[in-house]
């Protein structure tokens, strides 16, 4: 049933409070609410397809379920799939294996739910030790920042727009710090 509840107290809200231009109070806790509902609230989910059993010997069968009738090939690997194995994603029809490998290899960015921001890490390593107390640690953090920047330059960053500015700044600061250490050591050796 299309039940919409108050987000504060959980009281079931009636239709008179849906899609109103002004604030409406919850009858239970008097919290002021604005609720916009859409047709998906009233729609029943399509029943899951389990695939048709193969009845004719000449018909193609599913690669993963040989006793089930194939309905279409996988758009990635070409294997025949039954209705159960057919996963529709991003306007493609994929088999579970291709979906999983696509997720692991990062080919299906829509399945990414977490990414590491190596540019922020590199910039933090390059900048954080630049204090009066922590500057000796730049001997370690500067090369680390440089390594991370170069190593992960092409690693997929955030799925939202993000420039390489952090990498560039991290490399710049790291090189300055490494240069400073180089000059320092050279001066020490000379003296």
């Amino acid at each position: 049933m299309y039940v919409v509840t108050c987000t504060r107290c959980g009281f079931v809200l009636d239709e008179s409070r849906f899609n109103q231009p002004d604030w409406r109070d919850c009858p239970s806790c008097q919290a002021l609410l604005r609720v916009e509902v859409f047709p998906a609230l009233f729609k029943e989910a399509a029943p899951a397809q389990s695939g048709h059993v193969l009845v004719t010997e000449g018909e193609a069968s599913c690669f993963y379920h040989p006793h089930k009738k194939a309905t279409r090939p996988c758009d990635a690997c070409g294997r025949f799939l039954c209705a159960l194995c057919d996963v529709e994603f991003n306007d493609l029809h994929l088999c579970p294996s291709c979906l999983d490998s696509g997720r692991k290899k990062g080919h299906l960015s829509n399945l990414d739910n977490r990414r590491t921001l190596y540019d922020s890490l590199a910039l933090t390593l390059a900048l954080t030790p630049l204090t009066v107390i922590l500057w000796p640690f730049t001997l370690i953090t500067a090369p680390a920042a440089l390594f991370i920047s170069i190593r992960h330059w092409k690693t997929p960053s955030s799925v939202v727009p993000r420039s390489k500015a952090r990498f560039v700044l991290a490399i710049l600061f790291a090189l300055i710090q490494i240069g400073g250490w180089g000059i320092g050591f050279w001066s020490l050796i000379r003296s």
């Binding site: 987000t7 504060r8 609410l33 604005r34 990414d112 739910n113 977490r114 921001l117 922020s120 955030s158």
Partner: peptide, 19 residues
């Protein structure tokens, strides 16, 4: 140093509730 993503497809959104 990481980001987490949640996607809400327009065809799946049943309601937007502002309190």
């Amino acid at each position: 140093f990481s980001e987490e993503y949640k996607r809400f497809y327009f065809s799946d959104i049943q309601a937007l509730i502002v309190q």
